[in-house]
Amino acid sequence: MSRNPQLGRNGELVHLLTLEGLPAEVITHILDTAEPFASLGERDVKKVPLLRGKAVFNLFFENSTRTRTTFEIAAKRLSADVINLNIGASSTSKGETLLDTVDNLCAMNADMFVVRHSQSGAPHLIASHLTAMGRSHVHVVNAGDGRHAHPTQGLLDLYTIRHYKKDFRGLTVAIVGDVLHSRVARSLIHGLTTMQTAQVRVIAPRTLVPAQMEALGVKVCNDAREGLRDCDVVVMLRLQNERMKGALLPSPGEYFKNYGLTGEKLALAKPDAIVMHPGPMNRGVEIDTPVADGARSVILPQVTFGIAVRMAVLSIVAAN
């Protein structure tokens, strides 16, 4: 298999495309780098000059509010110039190809692309293209590609878990919901298994679990109650509206009944278990409001940590 294009000749991180195959030391380094950034937001002056003079292009071919905003804040706190492009509504609808868009933005002296795309592998394509065009000084950070990966989300999830649980090695983590379509789940799974998490469970009906899921090092539980038992961390996944009624699931109500996180189901987990969600939440579909807003929910801290982790990623990648 071809080498992952995100690592440079000496194993340094030149792009962040996926957490798969990323060494544990690199992940730890990113999380450690994020630590001091996490407190930066509480200061009066929220800026550091690490990316001063750099042009970061937020290249979003798919809608996003949270991820785009947190990337924007992260880049601005690093003193970069941030340019937001919602391409979904511009070039490609005029027929410009993805790589033509990239070439044009390179001509505007972009230093970094933060890319979201509906097709799995689009950031890999861009990274390979940049190398082929001799622009290896331009970096790519994947902000979510199709069903494939959302590595900064995976990293902020790891950061959150480490923040509350300190060590991954004794933990049981349950990921609940639409794993089939979830790039969040894939990235988190790779991150957790790399960090030697004791057990990673995936909880979903069989319609939402892809083939040979176990090969990724997880235990698949179709029964939510069985899967949640004695967990340290519960990660709920968002269920897209268009998938709530159809051939995958009969109704949001039935999904909530079987897989929605309620206080009663959460009681099966360990007493100190934390509840996470990448957002945006569907209250009453995948998670009950008292749980989402409850004492064990760390959903809002996740968002705050997300900025610090993205600052760490941008600064590390830009330095390589």
């Binding site: 494939h148 990966a149 990724l216």
Partner: peptide, 15 residues
């Protein structure tokens, strides 16, 4: 193909 690779890469699959 509907297998481990498609699952890893998040590619829609054909069984």
């Amino acid at each position: 193909h509907d297998g481990e690779v498609a699952t890893r890469l998040g590619l829609p699959s054909i069984p």
